[in-house]
Amino acid sequence: MPDGSLGSPLLTRSTLPGLRRGRGAVSNPANRFERSRTDTFDDGWGTLAEALADLPPLATSLTRDASRSALSWNDSPDIGFDRSVNPYKGCEHGCIYCYARPTHAWIGLSPGLDFESRLMFKPEVATLLEKELSKPGYTPRPIALGSNTDPYQPVERTLGLTRQVLEVLDRFNHPVTIVTKSAGVLRDMDILTRMAARNLVQVCLSVTTLDNRLARIMEPRAAAPLRRLAAMHELSRAGIPVGVLVAPVIPGVNDAEMEKVLEASHAHGARAAGYVLLRLPLEIRQMFEDWLNAHMPDRAARVLALVRETRAGRAYDSRFGIRQTGTGPYADMLASRFAVAMKRLGLDKARENGGLDCSRFVVPGVEARQLELL
């Protein structure tokens, strides 16, 4: 597989001192709300390089989240859902480009290594969700599962909070969309198959690259690309609607693979597709630049120039409607390539989220209690 669009070799972690094995970020910057910051520098004695030469693996810690609600709401005009559930804050997958990284600053942690190693989990998320869905006047619309951090990141294997959420949605006949980079979604095939039979679920696998080497440095703890494709095949074979999200598309890194990712995903059962251009809000800009200079120093300047070309000369443009796709000739070319590939593969005929059935929603036990009054 190609390693990107410029053809230069990727550096390995063995050649890059200071990088943590199995982690994506190469730094742990202070969050934007702190009044002071510290910078590491060598005092001239060469001790810094020695200290960073062989860092031990960074363990993952878990902290209980005391949130009193399960549903998060948004009114963004360019997002296809208005409510979501996130059982976890932070994500072990360690994707360097993750747009959710800056949210860790809200809890006083760094969007860097803290985001992928210091996780928050919501032990009561299923109970809270059940209460919110049972409130009088609740109007069902598809809930997005995995909108901020991956619902099937490694810790889900032991905590099982995503499965608990799905069990609630299954009982309430509530529609849900899932986005994940993990083959762990297959562990919930029993629930997903039942919900798919009632047109209550759609699953989207995010595939950034087909190159294992590139995937290991961009998203070190996510499932390998071939495992994601295999998961698509299993989901599709079970009758569960599945799609692919080519995200993010990084100019000069993985953009040359767009058509190949779509073709491979279609061959494995994907019948819907989308893409998102690289987003670098807030702290992510410098973190991405640090990562790029560490792993791809020969192409870093070119990649950053292309990114600015798609963002009107800036590192990021947060305006609704264009933040997902960018502007300018390079962004237009990506959009055209995507549209042509979609049409060629027949993916442009895919059903939107609105195709999920909201009419089946019912609060368990309500009908029985109503009959008792007769």
Rank of each mutant, 00 (worst) to 15 (best):
G146R: 05
S117Y: 02
A105F: 03
C91G: 02
P136I: 15
D75Y: 06
T158W: 10
S84H: 01
E124N: 12
F81S: 01
V125N: 15
V155T: 14
R163N: 13
R101W: 02
N148K: 06
G108Y: 11
Q153A: 01
D82Y: 03
L113H: 08
L159Q: 07
D150Q: 00
L119C: 12
E124P: 07
V85E: 00
V155L: 13
Y97L: 07
L166F: 06
G94K: 03
E167Y: 03
D150K: 00
H104I: 01
L133I: 12
R83Q: 14
Y152N: 00
P102K: 12
P77Y: 12
C95D: 01
T158R: 15
K135N: 13
L161D: 15
P111V: 04
E167T: 10
P111H: 02
K131T: 13
G90V: 04
E130F: 06
G146W: 03
A105Q: 03
N74S: 14
A105V: 05
L129Y: 10
R141T: 15
V155H: 09
A100R: 01
L129H: 08
L145R: 04
L109T: 07
L113A: 04
C91E: 05
C95I: 02
P140S: 07
D78N: 08
K122I: 02
V85S: 00
I79H: 13
D78Q: 11
N74F: 06
C91S: 07
Y97C: 12
R163P: 11
D82W: 02
S134Q: 08
G137S: 15
T103D: 02
P136N: 15
S76Q: 11
R83I: 09
P123C: 05
A144S: 15
Y88P: 06
I96V: 14
T162F: 04
F121L: 08
D75L: 07
F121C: 05
E167P: 07
S110T: 01
V125Y: 15
N148L: 14
C91A: 08
G160I: 12
Q164F: 03
F115C: 01
T149G: 06
D114H: 04
R101K: 06
S147R: 06
I79M: 15
R141P: 10
G80C: 05
L129G: 10
F81V: 03
V125W: 14
T149I: 09
N86Q: 09
T158Q: 12
E130L: 07
G112F: 03
T149S: 13
G90R: 05
Q153D: 00
N86D: 08
M120T: 06
L145G: 11
D150N: 01
T127N: 14
Y152H: 00
N148C: 10
Q164V: 04
L113N: 04
D82A: 09
Y152C: 00
S117K: 04
E132A: 11
A100F: 02
H104K: 06
A126W: 08
P87T: 09
P142F: 10
R141H: 15
F115I: 02
R141D: 15
D75S: 11
S147Q: 13
P123R: 04
I143R: 09
R83N: 06
D114C: 03
Y99R: 01
P151K: 00
R101S: 01
G108V: 13
P123M: 03
C91M: 03
R118V: 14
E124G: 07
H104M: 09
E156I: 11
